[in-house]
Nucleic acid binder design. Structure first.
Lengths: 337, 337
DNA sequence: AGCGATCGTCGAAGCGTTTCAACGATTCGC
DNA sequence: GCGAATCGTTGAAACGCTTCGACGATCGCT
């Protein structure tokens, strides 16, 4: 394994010149720079990570703390981990993965051994011990999602409020006045889960503000209960003409199945939008319009925020990522009465 | 941040004594060891990762290279990444995650910068550039899964051959003689995917060897095609009494749905076993007997193998993890004719 | 022409560990 | 009671890099 000494010898310069030539931190004659670069390349020189950490101030590693809860939806979870990894690499950073109980314990460890330059916290829950830890550790941290008390923290998340209003607006533009929002199971709200609550509350408040009929329904996960909920909705005296869904993939699939079985056509009889989803709604039949979670945009923003502030912790603030509407033909103007 | 010097001063000994006291690499008087330990604890001393890498020979980091392909089943993928992380932590190792194109490019990078002590290769494909790279890089490596040419590599995988025979044996013990295996879509086999082929070939050969009727069927992913396949099977002159399934979760769910719709009872009319599955087959109705993939057992074995050999590459060999049968009531003795 | 500023390069001082050779103090065998 | 072996401890030398201060050479300005 070639060291900086080998490169220096091969290029006929001193090791400091090699360092400066490769890092660009001081001006070096073009001819010298070229000679150094050539030598480095032909020797296959890669700086020793440990030496770099010790001498320099950067490790070029971020920790990603991503506990796995029993209700974690694996594909979404992975999309975020992946998006962080990809974003980090664009800034020459690698990702150290802390999962399960290491998501908390490992955080202190890697921070105080100065293994990482910063931390990305994924999948925050309402009461998240990692939040307090990040605050006391003083290691530069960005949180993806909004914890109960974001004071003193840099957070990034999709703007669920805007997403909800965007869904409603898109439908009122087409004349809809009677809405329903099918949310997650009750326990999710009772547990204080962050964005389901934000979506629910925004929906209710915004519908009231606009003088719309806006019913909120929770969804159980078993398919019979979902069908019963759909029946109750469609059989009500003035059934909604527009349905927002902010729930599990399987629930949304069941709803569509059951609606079809009842002879209700989407979008002719009922307009449907999936809000804040992580899965591919074009595989449903019919494909659903969606305002998706945006792992890439969110993680890019988070990593940018972290990198920009280094070596200091980023300025505490909550940054919202603007939602995007993806049309797939599941909405239509309100049907004639 | 406390350094080893601070600890030495606090304990009133030299830094080498601190190092030896904490590492246990030389005998140290018990009283001294205690004083050092106390000092380290009260100062919150954590050794500097970079200094350690530079001076010592270990980094206490493994790279996990896990590309994400378009057909990767996220939950299984994550289970493996997680299982590796957990196993590694038991040996005081952290995990550096290399995904997407970094799965290959990053491998050279982290290996030649001596950032990692070893590599775990996940999700090998038939033609996998990471295999060749691992061979030339000389960094200690263990592969999870069996590549086309495992020569010179240490590999760990579930014993799919044994799993398949176990499924067949379990059913022949109950008198079954007519079998079907529902596998993956055709393209999977054509692409040369490793374990689907191993399951298929073992099934066919073992059935022949035992003088059984063993039909192999591929499965398309769309539900109509799956139903048609089931119909063809059940309507054949001498329909099988036992069905093995080695296919996607949704396909298995569809099969069960359709079988039920046709009034065929599992297990009374048809015994069913799910082979090599990563998902929870107890959520099906009926719950299915399963010989699951074993991420934990597999990753434990892989990490153990890697750690045991360090700092040398592990001895090249293929280690098979024994399959486990999980009964959930989906098999029964062959029905009376 | 003479002066200071700028440029390209270099030597050397760390960074915080691990580890080796060596040392004084005990203990042991005879 | 003497030399040899053992034990606990130490100082110092790496490990490979970054970065600071310094130095000649070159430049631009009066």
């Amino acid at each position: 394994m070639a060291t900086i000494h080998d490169v220096a010898r091969a290029a006929g310069v001193s090791i400091s010149t090699v360092s400066y030539a490769l890092s660009g931190k001081r001006s070096i004659a073009d001819s010298t720079r070229r000679r150094v670069a050539d030598a480095a390349l032909s020797l296959g020189y890669e700086p020793h990570a440990g030496a770099r950490m010790l001498a320099g101030t950067r490790t070029q590693i971020f920790a990603v703390t991503a506990p796995l809860r029993h209700d974690t939806y694996a594909p979404a979870h992975m999309a975020f981990v992946l998006a962080v990894a990809t974003a980090a690499r664009r800034h020459d950073y690698d990702i150290l993965l802390l999962t399960e109980d290491e998501a908390t314990k490992g955080l202190s460890r890697v921070a105080s051994s100065r293994l990482v330059d910063g931390v990305i916290v994924l999948d925050v829950s309402v009461k998240d011990e990692r939040i307090a830890l990040a605050r006391t550790l003083g290691v530069p941290t960005v949180v993806i999602g909004i914890p109960e008390d974001p004071d003193g923290l840099a957070c990034v998340d999709l703007d669920f409020e805007a997403a909800t209003r965007l869904a409603v607006d898109t439908l009122t533009d087409r004349g809809h006045r009677r809405f329903a929002l099918l949310g997650h199971p009750d326990e999710i709200y009772e547990r204080g889960s962050n964005f389901p609550i934000r979506v629910r509350d925004t929906f209710t408040a915004y519908a009231a503000e606009q003088g719309l009929d806006g019913r909120f329904l929770t969804s159980e996960t078993d398919s019979a209960a979902v069908r019963a909920t759909v029946d109750a909705l469609l059989d009500s005296p003035e059934p909604p003409t527009a349905l927002l869904m902010h729930s599990q993939e399987s629930v949304q699939a069941t709803v569509l199945d059951h609606v079809r079985e009842r002879g209700v056509s989407v979008p002719d009889d009922l307009s449907v939008i999936s809000v804040g989803s992580t899965f591919d709604t074009t595989r449903f039949s019919p494909a659903l319009d969606v305002i998706p979670l945006l792992p890439h945009a969110t993680c890019d923003a988070a990593v940018d925020m972290l990198v920009a502030a280094l070596p200091e912790p980023p300025e505490p603030r909550v940054q919202y990522v603007a939602p995007e509407y993806r049309a797939n033909g599941s909405i239509a103007p309100v049907p004639a009465p």
